[in-house]
């Protein structure tokens, strides 16, 4: 408690964080539009070999050059970006539902059930999300990579949401509400409404950044996307043998990947959140 007067009332203001988040969302929006128009913008269908001579450096005819199989890097990057964004979007939904939402609800379940669920999430969270995603893919199939990545990142979101919900449930204002007859269900609704209304976009953007890193790394290591539906991670992996001489084969998809992750992180409000 602090000692304050009747006339003290700070006014809300536009913050640097708010501006940066807006920039992030604008960036994500622009990427979304690009992905939506990728079939139109790309000059060649995905995985079109011999579209041009192999390993042509960026030029007027091939703005982003060609790769070792003569595929147009611009077209390939657009297609790969579409695959990456789509998969990451699906995985982010899994993270939000199986992580944030489930964690929040689990915290309000009877203590023992909540404790067990929190324990399971804690143990899964003690394994790097990357390895967990690879394990899930190994146990299931590569086609389920987005689900695997989502489930691998979810434990950290789960524990974070669980702890937050527990703290909220034990706060003075929650006790005050319970003491005036607000039911646990109404309290959960209230918390979900305010937590997700205020931070849904942040949570989703943070999850998007985390799963993008996991998914692209999984693909880079050879456990994710498969041709012809190559994603950016797989494009970079394919460039590994030639990129010392043809830098653009790795740099272009890497730049696209970094830009997407950066936009997601900026949209998340400068909180690095779940590491992957």
């Amino acid at each position: 408690m602090s000692v304050v007067s009747a006339h003290e009332a700070p006014a809300p203001a536009i913050t640097l964080g708010g501006v940066i988040r807006a920039v992030g969302f604008i960036g994500l929006g622009a990427i979304g539009v690009t992905v939506g128009l990728s079939e139109v913008l790309a000059r060649a269908p995905a995985d079109t070999i011999d579209f041009g001579p192999p390993l042509i450096a960026p030029s007027i005819h091939f703005p982003l050059g060609t790769d070792v199989l003569g595929r147009d890097m611009l077209s390939e990057t657009l297609h790969a970006l579409a695959v990456t964004v789509t998969n990451a979007g699906l995985a982010a939904i899994v993270v939000v539902v199986a992580g944030g939402l489930a964690g929040f609800i689990a915290a309000r379940l009877p203590y023992r059930i909540g404790f067990v669920l929190r324990g399971i999430a804690g143990i899964l969270g003690a394994i790097p999300a990357l390895l967990l995603a690879i394990l899930f893919i190994g146990l299931a199939s590569r086609g389920l990579a987005p689900l695997a990545a989502g489930l691998a990142v979810a434990p950290l979101g789960f524990t974070r949401a669980f702890d937050r919900a527990r703290a909220l449930g034990q706060s003075r204002h929650a006790e005050f509400a319970r003491a005036t007859g607000i039911s646990p269900g109404a309290l959960l609704r209230r918390d979900l409404t305010y937590e997700f209304r205020d931070s849904f976009l942040s949570i989703a953007a943070r999850a998007l950044a985390a799963v993008t890193i996991v998914l692209s790394t999984v693909s880079f290591l050879g456990y994710g996307a498969t041709p012809p539906h190559r994603d950016l991670g797989l494009m970079i992996a394919a460039a590994r043998d030639v990129y010392f001489d043809a830098w653009w084969t790795a740099a272009v998809p890497a730049a696209a990947l970094a830009l997407f992750i950066l936009c997601a992180r900026l949209a998340a409000g400068l909180d690095e959140g779940e590491r992957a």
Binding site: R172, R190, Y194
Partner: peptide
């Protein structure tokens, strides 16, 4: 007489 009796997000 405490400042944290109301949900600060509401």
């Amino acid at each position: 007489g405490a400042d944290d009796m109301l949900d600060p997000r509401m």
